[in-house]
Structures are given as C-alpha cells and as structure tokens.
Nucleic acid binder design. Structure first.
Length: 405
RNA sequence: GCGCUCAUCGUCUAGCCUGGCCUAGGACACCGGCCUUUCACGCCGGCGACAGGGGUUCGAAUCCCCUUGGGCGUACCA
C-alpha cells in the first residue's frame, strides 16, 4: 500500500494482540446464551456433512450440541458456536448490489472459537470492525455470503450493523479466479517488472469503476472523483495489455528526475552501474517515449553505461562495412571540433558530415548507431551522441573503425 | 446439489435507475495509412458488442419473466 501511495489513518493492528478482547466477547455470548459449546469431533462433522450432501441435503451443522441437555465430560475439548437464527430472513442493502436477502435457514451455527481457544475469521472481523467504529465495510464480493452470518453476530453483541459495499472481483483471462497462472498476483511483482505505482492504481481502479470516458486519473483526482455510485456489479477480467499501456503513459509523462532515481535499481538488477557516465535524467529523457516498463528502459539504457559496446553481429556485418569508414572518420572529425555540445550543436556536426559526403542522415545514421550502441535500435541518434558525451562518442566511433571489415 | 450474485465489442467500460437523443459512445489490443535517422511516440482511419427466448409498450440495450452461461459461498481458511 505504501508503494502504491495508499495511506491509512491508523494501524496496522494485529489480531494476535487482541485475543483477550475476542475471548471476552465470546464469553459474553456464552453468558447470554447466544453461543454454546460444541463437543462434536471433526470426524463426526465431516461424516455428517458428506452424508447430507449425498442425500441432497444442505451440509450444515445439525445442532447436536445446540440441543444437548446432558453435561459433557469436564475436560472434553470443544469449540464455541454462535446460535444463528433458525427462521426468518436476514436482509441488508448493499451499497453496490442493492438489497440482498438470505433465508436464515441457510445459516449455519458457525464456529467462533476453535478447540485451541483462538477465534475464527467471521467472528473476529465483526468485533474488530465494530470496536474500531467502522460504519462502512468495503470488501470483495466473495464476502457477500459471509455478510448474513456476520450481521446476527453484530446484533447479538449489541453493535450497530454497518453498511456494506461489495466490490466485484478480478478474474483471469479465462474468467476463473485470478491466480498465478494468469501472471503475477502480487502488486510487488509488478514493481519488479518495472511498473509504476500510479499505473497500477489507475489500472486497478478502472477495473470495476468508471467516470464517464476518462481513462487517466491521478491519485488526487481519484480521491476527488471516486464514488461507490460508479462501481460496477460485474467481475472484471485482468487485462495486462491495458496495464502496460497505462504504464507506458506514466513513463512517458513522468518526471525524468524521479524516473532516473527509480531506473538506477533496474539497471543495477541487470548488472549495470550507473554511478559513472551520463546523468540518469538525461538518459531517461531519451527513452521515455519508447519504454513501456522500467525494465525495458533499463535494457534500452544499458549501452550508455557499459564500457564495451555489445555489438550485434548481424548489425555489424550490415552497417560497419569498409565503405562506411570515411563517413565515420568525417564524423569523428566534426564531432571532435564541436564546441557546442548541445542537441543542436551535435546536429550541426552531423549536418557538416552530410554536406561533406553528400549523404542523407538515413545513409549514415545506421552505421553510427551500430558504432555507438552495438545494435540497430536506439533513441534518436543525435540524442544518443549528445547524452553519451563527446569523449565517449568519439572513442566508440574510433573503436568501430578498428573492427570494420 | 443448495444458496447468493452477475451478464453491452476479444478485454475494461459509457448508456440502464428516470424507456425514444443509440444506425450503441470511449479506451486497450488488433489491422491499414500518415509522420520518420532505427525502434518507438504521435496523428488519421478500420474491425468489433446489447447472451438466448418470451412478454409489457406506439417504441426496449434500457422494465418484467424464463433459459443459458460465469463468479462466489457452502471449513475448527481468511
């Protein structure tokens, strides 16, 4: 959440540190007769559940201990079950899905405290949410079914029942629950893959929510514009391409200074030391428009920092042929004489080479590119030369002359 | 099985509540063109959906019913 820029007002709280509270609440329910001890063994329970399922019955607890009259052995292990209402129905108005009604006959006497004395999820969330004064519970709609079990617990404990908003889930491309085989399921994995937090937030929020035709939202804008009213009901399929597009957008429009700082780590991850050589923000500017992720940008930026140019054989064979020697020599000369090492100054030097050789940039560019970068794709050649610097550029051109066939 | 729930382009969605403005809009992806020193960016254009069937109505993507399909739940998991 920190990485995503999502802050919180208090906490985190650890349930493991609140067991006393849960114990007291369980006791309260026991004392008031709204919960009871159940001595049924797990084996018994499983057998009953299976039998019920076989006979086409609901696999719910049969209430053996709820109706028990005889006292059990003093030290027999037990769980605590909540006495769910047997008849009638439980209704709540979901802020997203509207009214939802469950017949109480569907409800089970859920276990609220295990044999080892620890409380269970459905009980703990009720106590926590109520004790913390939550008035609106926003959660995934895989919890819709838990709601009618939790509401009676709120009531039994004398807590006000909060409002609920169940947001749709995110599905994989095959519409099944999102899992590892659909790609990364952890946001941190996306950071490692070179995604920006604002792209992640923007993508995720638009999955299940909309604001007219708008696609791009800053965090501030989201805070201002987000509303439960515009949350959709249907589950959304995670679409990596759109995430990638958003990421590319934020890279394109991002601050080079900040991106440079981030890029450092991605370069380090592929064994490139950026402490020496061109300034990172300048490097970033040459790659912003052509990188979809920071990983991609790091790969594209590596040539700026490596001492040795990693020549691509095919590219060398095609563009560093002997007949290009005079071009490179002319360029070395004009670049060496260049006094104004700006983009325009560099462009002027190229201009002189073009004039001298009578060739267009299209004829000399590829060879220069291979000489400086090693391959046939890179940022604009003027930018590369300018960012690489006078000394390095000329050195690389000289090196290229030595490997020419 | 039972319960809950959802259903517009391949995907995210607008429109649905308050029927006619919808020959259904936008975005991603894809295809084509333009731009161009490579790769990209950008710009222009194209392809492409109201799940099916019944109603209600002068008129339905919009309201009702059924069917089908998907998701979730059905734990001493959370």
């Amino acid at each position: 959440m920190e990485w995503l820029g999502l802050s919180y007002d208090e906490g985190p709280f650890y349930q493991s540190e609140r067991f006393e509270l849960y114990r007291a609440k369980v006791q309260q329910l026991l004392d008031s007769g709204q919960a009871y001890r159940c001595y049924c063994s797990q084996d018994e329970l499983n057998a009953k559940r299976e039998a019920a399922l076989q006979n086409g019955q609901k696999p719910k607890y049969d209430g053996t201990c709820r109706n028990r009259t005889a006292a059990p052995a003093v030290d027999a292990p037990y769980v605590v079950r909540f006495k769910s209402p047997l008849t009638g129905e439980t209704t709540f108005v979901d802020r997203i899905k509207g009214p939802i009604t469950f017949s109480n006959e569907e409800l089970d006497d859920i276990i609220i405290q295990r044999t080892d004395g620890t409380p269970t999820y459905n009980f703990v969330v009720v106590v926590d949410d109520a004790e913390m004064g939550l008035t609106l519970i926003v959660r995934g709609d895989d919890h819709v079914n838990n709601t009618p079990r939790q509401i009676p617990i709120y009531q039994a404990l004398g807590y006000p029942v909060p409002e609920f908003a169940h947001v749709p889930m995110i599905l994989g491309a095959d519409k099944s629950r999102l899992s590892k085989r659909h790609g990364a399921t952890s946001v941190m994995a996306y950071r490692d893959m070179g995604y920006l937090p604002e792209a992640m937030v923007n993508y995720l929020v638009r999955l299940g929510w909309s604001f007219g035709d708008q696609e791009i939202f800053s965090l501030d804008e989201l805070i201002e514009k987000f509303s439960l009213d515009n949350v959709g009901k249907a589950a959304g399929v995670f679409n990596p391409e759109k995430l990638l597009w958003l990421n590319a957008h934020y890279i394109k429009t991002g601050d080079p200074e900040r991106l440079g700082n981030l890029l450092k780590d991605y370069l380090a991850a592929i064994g490139v030391d950026s402490s020496q050589g061109p300034a990172l923000p300048a490097v970033v500017k040459t790659l912003q428009e052509r990188s979809q992720t920071l990983v991609e940008m790091a790969q594209g930026a590596a040539f700026y920092y490596r001492d040795e140019v990693a020549y691509d054989e095919e590219a060398v064979a095609k563009f560093l042929t002997a007949d290009k020697r005079s071009i490179l020599e002319a360029l070395i000369r004009h670049l060496g004489a260049c006094k104004d090492w700006s983009h325009d100054g560099v462009a002027a030097a190229f201009g002189q080479v073009m004039e001298e050789t009578g060739l267009k940039l299209g004829k000399i560019g590829p060879s220069v590119r291979v000489a400086l970068v090693g391959g046939t794709t890179s940022p604009s050649i003027y930018d590369v030369v300018q960012v690489l610097g006078q000394k390095t550029s000329i050195n690389r051109l000289l090196m290229a002359l030595t490997i020419m066939s």
